[in-house]
Design a protein around this nucleic acid. Structure first.
Lengths: 339, 339
DNA sequence: CTGAAAGCGCTTACAG
DNA sequence: CTGAAAGCGCTTACAG
């Protein structure tokens, strides 16, 4: 009934710590933030007081006073996609031990959401920012422009001098899988994709390029839908493809969820894979290798992407220049039994 | 080169807004936070200034001054488990439109991590907190005790008067699936589980109870491992079970990933499911219904859990008393073809 | 309905 | 190596 501010009864402040340690507020502050610039005795007393009082620094106060924070914002398009979960986990594994906290934002593949998240998160003055891909709305780009801490882009590669990025060429991956299929003798190779985010479209371009090179490009064999990716959708896309183009002998699905659904449907239809129809996916999710037939797909090293991007950001946040501005982690076409 | 603080060049403050709107700092503040308590003209001018200057409130300053924030912390054990992703997505869907931001923390099923996250997140003075389950370390419990904003617990149910929770009885779910298997005539029903988090152990207890009721409980048929759950692990657990107890005629796996792995392995071994061996899972992930044979499992409505928990927390943060302190969303045993 | 003052809990130059 | 003062950008009682 006495205190006018309703803060937790026992939350100790730095001033309490200083009092208890018998030093000034700012010596206490220094003992915590630059322990080496303070006498051993002082440091000991302060640490002891911190322990005794259960002192926890107030992030808002710290961030307000220093115009910095230990926050790192990460914007990804989805959490339902294991690819991004793996990436975020890896990022966390390198940033957390370094004392950073992650703010994870999910844009659901929507440019407006991307922009909203960017705006909200940057208001917190994060020490660093990790974003997915380079494409965004003009407004979002403007928001990014006014941000003056380091940014590292995940998943895609850029040749621009000012960009820091860790990823691989989505275009090349799409092209290379297509070439493998062509090499195996498939001639009427369809391409099926959902979500239609930038990376999907880059893979589609790769597919087109490879098909054109082989003189086999047929726009009608592309089935692109903005719907959310899922196993069920994969089954539906296969149905549509089969109904419209019975001549197809292979389908390259833009991700493993779709390919898995197609594999399941093929089984229901008693359609032999790969004899009657080859099926390929993208990402090499855990289930891919276990399917029967085992799924041919493109292995992407998203854990590695997260790890390297986290390390790159760490260097930048420390004011160091990382060894490379652009890391290509590559990909690997994994030919198994389904194609 | 002039300003001594390195804040973003153009970041406008509320004071800039006030100046531009020709009013006092605090009228500007009020126009934003309590628009109805201010004259229409003032509100208009302030909004106009906000727009013109691209003003974005400073979260740290706001939180420091008001001892509140628009942050809601969510602690879950894993993001690799689709169950928690679904839950978090649903939470976000109800909290975001209400103006809250989520801080998502992943404990990886480790009590120390749970405690560390709690400590770190509560330092930010979140307006509300969502945690998974009731079990935690004493230290973590103490941290929670000193937190004086609302807490809602996900996934589990409590009868304590002071707890707010949304979930279902993991014990009952474990027992009920086991009873269904017994009813179908299976007699040597093994139980296989990984991770060994509290909910897993509650399901195991349910299994035991049902087996005892049927006079069929055999401790040797329980295979519990602290290893991380995965498809591959499910296959391995099946191997072990088969090697040690060839007499088993059914296995109840603690989650769908494990069950999927077992289904895949059974196929490799040309082991007929469910004739030779029945297999059941838990959670009803998307792939479950597509498998061949389709997986018998327990459907959990984690989206609903997230939604209801989010709404309950919203009520509490508004100072209202929610209709119920404890919501049982139930579960459903889905008998398909694998058992 | 509007405003002047104090304060939230820290850090940052600047002195000593 | 240590300290007194100012200030980060807001909100909160309290007056008028």
């Amino acid at each position: 009934m006495s205190s006018r501010r309703r803060r937790s009864p026992e939350r100790a402040t730095l001033s309490d710590v200083a009092k208890s340690a018998g030093c000034s507020l700012m010596s206490a502050s220094r003992a915590l933030s630059q322990p080496e610039r303070v006498s051993d005795a002082l440091r000991e007393r302060v640490m002891e007081a911190v322990r005794a009082l259960g002192y926890v620094p107030h992030p808002a106060a710290r961030s307000l006073a220093s115009a910095r924070s230990n926050l790192v914002a990460v914007i990804i398009p989805s959490l339902s996609n294991a690819v991004f979960v793996d990436t975020v986990e890896a990022i966390q594994r390198v940033l957390m031990p370094a004392g950073y906290e992650l703010m994870i934002g999910v844009s659901h593949y929507r440019p407006e959401e991307d922009e909203r998240l960017l705006r909200a998160y940057l208001a917190h003055q994060p020490a660093g920012l990790l974003v997915t891909g380079f494409e965004r709305s003009d407004a979002a780009r403007e928001v990014l422009g006014s941000y003056d801490s380091p940014i590292v882009t995940l998943m895609e590669l850029s040749d621009a001098e000012e960009d820091y990025c860790v990823g691989f060429s989505q275009f090349d991956a799409g092209a290379q899988m297509t070439r493998h299929l062509l090499q195996r003798g498939y001639r009427h190779i369809a391409f099926a994709a959902a979500q239609l985010d930038p990376r999907t479209l880059q893979r589609a371009e790769g597919y087109r390029q490879a098909m054109r090179e082989a003189g086999r490009h047929e726009p009608a064999l592309e089935l692109l839908t903005p719907a959310v990716s899922s196993i069920g959708l994969g089954a539906e896309l296969l149905d549509q493809l089969l109904a419209r183009h019975p001549e197809i002998d292979a389908v390259f699905f833009n991700n493993d969820d779709l390919a898995l659904g197609a594999l399941f449907r093929a089984r229901q239809l008693a359609l032999e894979v790969p004899q009657r129809l080859a099926i390929a996916g993208f990402n090499d999710l855990p289930a891919a290798a276990w399917m029967h037939p085992a799924l041919t797909t493109v292995r992407t090293t998203r854990g590695r992407i997260g790890e390297l991007a986290g390390q790159m950001l760490l260097s930048l946040m420390r004011g160091e220049q990382p060894p490379q501005r652009r890391i290509d982690v590559g990909f690997e076409v994994v030919m198994r039994d389904s194609a």
